[in-house]
Nucleic acid binder design. Structure first.
Lengths: 139, 139
DNA sequence: ATAATTGCAAAAGCTTTGCATGGCC
DNA sequence: GGCCATGCAAAGCTTTTGCAATTAT
């Protein structure tokens, strides 16, 4: 049950449960396309025609602050949102807006071992993310 | 001679040489701090008090279009610029605005070998970039 | 000479803020 | 009931656009 999940996430974080928040979280959880604010707002207005832009911004900011979602920066500067807050990498499409999550424990191991050997003199590594750009479903 | 370098870059690209363009390029070449538009504009106004914001935007957009510089996206959404257009990775500071270039042929080899083995079914890789976040000069 | 760039002003986006109303706990 | 979230309007930023004057080739 999706609503249950959204509801649980909100209550677990001690956040007030409003229909708008549930709707936003449902969208984030059900579309694994890292939606933009524009996408989220358009979709929301199907069921909440009077929802305001500032409410959507407020909700998303609240979610980010509470670690429910992350911002994903894209090449064109449009911010998108990722409900998967576990550490992972991303596949970016060069010729479309598609973004896919990419989990790879083997890669993570490879990288952490590499950077353990190859220490930086004046830099303490906290996190390594790989951005892989390419073409989905190539001809 | 720095101006000569900036001048050469412009003429090589077939771009008109203006004092403003040389000044912007000089800043980009001399500060290896991946400056923001704000930084660039402030610095420019020391010598060009009347340069307008739109000119700076126009110049930077022209440079990006011509492959002289790249945009670098940061965590807080501020766009910054990188005069090094060779493929490389970045070290990002978690607690400051510092960004450093990071060239590592060994890492590139490691990654390309790894992804040669581990092919994606529906994705053709064009470019791999590693974002390394951490702390410069830790205590 | 002529075509492009500059500077200024205005417009266009995107995001935040202020505040009264309404809804959640 | 008290406090927080919502919706609306307005303000704040950043970036782009239009255009006359200036400058580079």
């Amino acid at each position: 049950m999706v609503n249950k999940t959204a509801l649980k996430i909100l209550t677990d974080k001690g956040l007030r449960v409003t229909p708008q928040r549930i709707a936003v979280l449902d969208i984030l959880l059900n579309f694994d396309n890292h939606p933009s604010i524009e996408f989220i707002t358009e979709y929301l207005r199907i069921n909440f025609p009077r929802i305001s832009d500032s409410t959507v911004y407020n909700i998303l900011n609240t979610f980010v602050k509470n670690g429910i979602i992350n911002r994903v920066k894209t090449e064109n500067g449009i911010i998108r949102f990722d409900p998967v807050t576990d550490k992972h990498h991303h596949l970016y499409s060069i010729d479309s807006e598609q973004i896919e999550d990419f989990f790879d424990a083997e890669l993570d191991k490879l990288l952490s071992e590499y950077f353990l050997k190859k220490q930086f003199p004046n830099f303490k590594i906290e996190e390594i993310r790989v951005q892989i750009k390419g073409i989905f479903n190539p001809a």
